[in-house]
Each structure stands twice: as C-alpha cells, then as structure tokens.
Design a protein around this nucleic acid. Structure first.
Length: 436
RNA sequence: GGCCCCGUCGUCUAGCGGCCAAGGAUUUCGGGUUCUCAACCCGAAGACAGGGGUUCAAAUCCCCUCGGGGCCA
C-alpha cells in the first residue's frame, strides 16, 4: 500500500457520460497500479440540479465498468467542514466578507506556475485573476473551494481530472497556500471530442455509459476502448483489466484531445466477444434475447444448454454487439422467419420439390450432428441429381432467415432437423402458390 | 473578447535529435479462402498544419503564423 489517494468527483446532474467514465477509469487504474486508494465523491452541493436518480446512474455505470471504490462521500454531508475552512481563511486574512458572501483574495501581480504531470509547466498571469466567492450567502461553498477542502480532508495526493479544469488550478493552488497546505499533484487529461472535434456531448449521439451497455457493448470492451483513448502502451491494442492495471501510468497519457470513434469501439467489442468464456457470453445473450424481444424467458429455458453454447460459438465471430448476437439467434426459436428483401430472389418456384424432399429426409434423419445431416442431405441431392450449390443458399435463407452465417450444416444442426424441416415445408408451400 | 491547452494517416496512436525515404491498430478498397458471411492470410490507399530558426543531423528543441478546442466573460 502506497500513499496514493485519488478520487473521481462527478456532480449528479445527469447520467455518467463516456468522458467522465474515462476520467474515473484513469483515476481507478492509477490507484490500482500504485496500490493506492480510489475514492468516489459525489459533488452534490448544487441541490437544485442534483438528483438521486443521477447518483444511482453513476453508481450503476461504475459498477458495470467494474470500477470499484474504496471510500464513498457526498459533499453535502460535509458542509460544516467547508464553513470551518472558510473561517480559517478569514482568520488568516486571506478571505473577507462582502455582500453576505465570503471572498478569497487572489494575488494581482506576478505569475502562478502550475506543474502539471501531463501538461507540464503552465503559467498564469496573476493580473488576470479576480477575487472569488468561496462561500455563498446561503452558506454553500463554490466549486473551487469545496474541491480544495474535500481534497485536503480526504488526503488526496493526485488530482486526475479533465483538461477543462486546468484554468481552475491556479485558483486552487492559492487556496492551498493560503491555508498553509501542500497542494496535491495535478494531472489534467485531454478531453474526448465528438467527430466534429468539439467536446463530446449529447448532440453527438450516444454518450451515456449505460446507453452503450444497452447497445450490447461489453464492459471489457468499453474499458479497453476508454483506456486507449488518450493513453497508450506501445503498439498494444487489446488489454485485459489486469494488463491495464499493470501497465497504466500517467507517463503513457498523451497531451492532445482524442475523438471518440464508435467504429473502433465496435471492433474492440467483437474482439472481446471472442475472448469471453462461452458460458459468460451465453448468460449475457439470454438477457439480450429478452431485451430485444427475440424470445421469451420460457423459450430460452426450453433451449438445451449445448445448443445455446454452440450458437454463441458460431455467432460471436459474426456479431459486433450483444444486440446483433441476439438477433442472429432468432433462428433457434420456433416460429416463422422473415425472408430479407435481398434474399427474395433466391427463392425460385422450382425449389419447392427439392425442399420437400430434403425436409422429409431431415424428419427421418438418424444423426442430427452437422456431419450426419450433411450425409443425409447429400444423399437426397444425389437422388435428385442436384449440386449442393443449387440449394445451399436458398435453404440457408429459409432455415436461418439470412443469406449469411455459419456453415449450412452447422446451421441445420443448430436449428435442429425438426424445426428446419418445418421451415422448409412451409417455404415449399409458398413456392407452390407462387407457381400456381 | 481575454487567458490557457492542443496540432503525426479519416480515426486511435508509436515516435521523446540520428535506428523514420515515419511503425502499429481501425476504417475503406482489392486478392486468397471445399455454399454464403464472418474469421484468418496477403496486398493497396492514407499523416509529421505552414514558415522560419538551433544543430553535422528535427516529426522530435525554439519562435511566428494558421487551424482546432477548453475556461472565464
């Protein structure tokens, strides 16, 4: 255990967005890497805009990402502290009362130097500063002051936060000095931008962490992606949580802002879908089957575990999100499958006969394995004097509802000969109607 | 408007004075791949914002310009 103590300090005025999530992640990784303490501090002094729902959302988001905290605080529970520090500043002559508020005296000449762990040495001209309110007339502290008091009280050693707070830093430094305190070290991380290179916000589309969970992104992928946004470790792209903890440090953090690229997130997500243990992915798939309205809980329970696992193995390479995975799994459940428009042309009337023949063979099939079904079907095709190619794609469309997917016999085995035969019969009937 | 930050392929980035006629990843486009797709393999395209310095040598250091962003008004 080293002395490192860091905190993530969101205001509960809305959902946790990806920028905040990355700040939280960097703090968490820094703490875990150095064997330090990660603190979650809810900055809820703005009572009109803070809500309990927002706190729940933030907590749920951090839990989903697997960022656990060692200590938890709410700023509103600490108001007396802020008042005590304000009085101390008053007594030291560093603050004064005016208009019912308490003001902090900022220097008006010279320069203030911030030694930032990421930005380097940053100088501010003191003549730019004005005195600032630290305690409003209603007794509530303002942001910069509350921050200094809480960070002091919590023994924060490193303040890792977004770049937008860099201009606040000289103000906070002067408060530390006026209080006779040694300030923590500061590390300002560059912002995450939208595709238009402005600060990422709601108008860029999905920005809430929980929205990505809903879209079928895995937490492993989100953490990996967020970590690589502004931080790097040589040429490595895929990082497990353990690797991130091992390798993460502030010297790997860049100085320039980065654009949130959903394409890369999706790529990483598929990479993680391939890496996750099958049973874990299967559990998640069940959840999304229900969420997406693909199947009911009863239907899912009725499915043999081996089928579900096999489906996960076969489909996960072909899906970028859990949502896609769930929709692909549609074929496993009873019921009709819509034929996609781009596959309509494949279904020609003359296929009706072969479909019936194959369906009948499937009903009698003794060996339901992919290889067994292949033997069965090749026999039928030989009798009909048809090459596999003539029926493969149309069959796939009828049985799976898509012209793309795993090998035909894998699909048949997965769907099962009985359900596959049903679908073929129904398709054959429709084709006969077309003919007539 | 003032102050501050940033500027390598479309995007994420490696690079921290010579190993760079700039590497990886993603994206896009070709090719290979017993029915398709995916995966995989091979290949193509694609960047040091511009200009001055410093140096034997600069993507790397300094200055200016331009561009982008953030904060405060």
């Amino acid at each position: 255990m080293t002395g490192v103590r860091v905190r993530f300090a969101p205001s509960p005025t809305g959902y946790l967005h990806v920028g905040g999530a990355r700040t939280a992640l960097f703090n968490w990784l820094f703490a875990r890497h150095h064997g330090g303490t990660f603190i979650l501090r809810i900055e809820d002094t703005d009572r009109t805009r803070s809500t309990e729902e927002a706190i729940d959302q933030i907590v749920a988001s951090l839990r989903w990402l697997g960022l656990d905290w060692d200590e938890f605080y709410r700023q509103t529970e600490r108001l007396s502290l802020h008042q005590r520090y304000a009085e101390e500043l008053l007594r030291r002559g560093a603050a004064y009362e005016a208009d019912g508020a308490i003001w902090f005296r900022m220097p008006k000449e010279g320069v203030t130097v911030v030694h930032d762990l990421i930005a380097g040495k940053v100088e501010f001209q003191n003549r730019e500063f004005k005195d600032l309110v630290i305690l409003r007339s209603d007794g509530t502290p303002t942001y910069n002051f509350a921050c200094v008091v809480d960070d002091t009280e919590m023994g924060i050693t490193h303040v890792i936060r977004g770049d937008e707070h860099l201009p606040n830093t000289p103000k906070q430094l002067h408060m530390y000095w006026a209080l006779g305190l040694t300030p923590p070290k500061f590390a300002h991380i560059p912002l995450i931008l939208g595709p238009d290179r402005t600060k990422l916000s709601k108008r860029h589309g999905a920005v809430s962490v929980l929205e990505y969970r809903r879209k079928g992104i895995l937490p492993e992928a989100m953490v990996n992606f967020l970590a690589r946004l502004g931080w790097s470790h040589g040429d490595q792209e895929i990082f497990s949580r353990e690797e991130l903890i091992r390798y993460f440090d502030l010297d790997g953090v860049g100085q320039s802002p980065s654009v949130f690229d959903e394409q890369k997130l999706l790529w990483l997500n598929r990479e993680w879908m391939r890496r996750l243990p099958v049973d874990e992915l299967a559990e998640l798939l069940k959840e999304f089957l229900v969420l997406e309205g693909v199947a009911s809980s009863e239907e899912i329970e009725a499915l043999p575990k081996t089928t579900l696992y096999r489906a996960v193995e076969l489909f996960r390479d072909r899906s970028r999100t859990l949502v896609e995975l769930a929709h692909t799994a549609r074929m496993l459940f009873p019921g009709e499958l819509a034929v996609p428009a781009e596959a309509q042309e494949l279904l020609q009337p003359e296929l009706a006969g072969p479909f019936v023949a194959i369906a009948q063979a499937l009903e009698r099939a003794g060996d339901p394995s992919p290889m067994g079904l292949e033997t069965t079907i090749r026999e039928v095709l030989a009798q009909l004097n048809l090459p596999l190619k003539a029926v493969a794609l149309p069959m796939r469309v009828v049985v799976s509802g898509s012209r793309v997917g795993p090998g035909l016999f894998e699909v048949l085995a997965l769907v099962g000969p009985k359900l596959a035969a049903e679908r073929l019969h129904r398709a054959a009937e429709k084709l006969k109607e077309m003919k007539g």
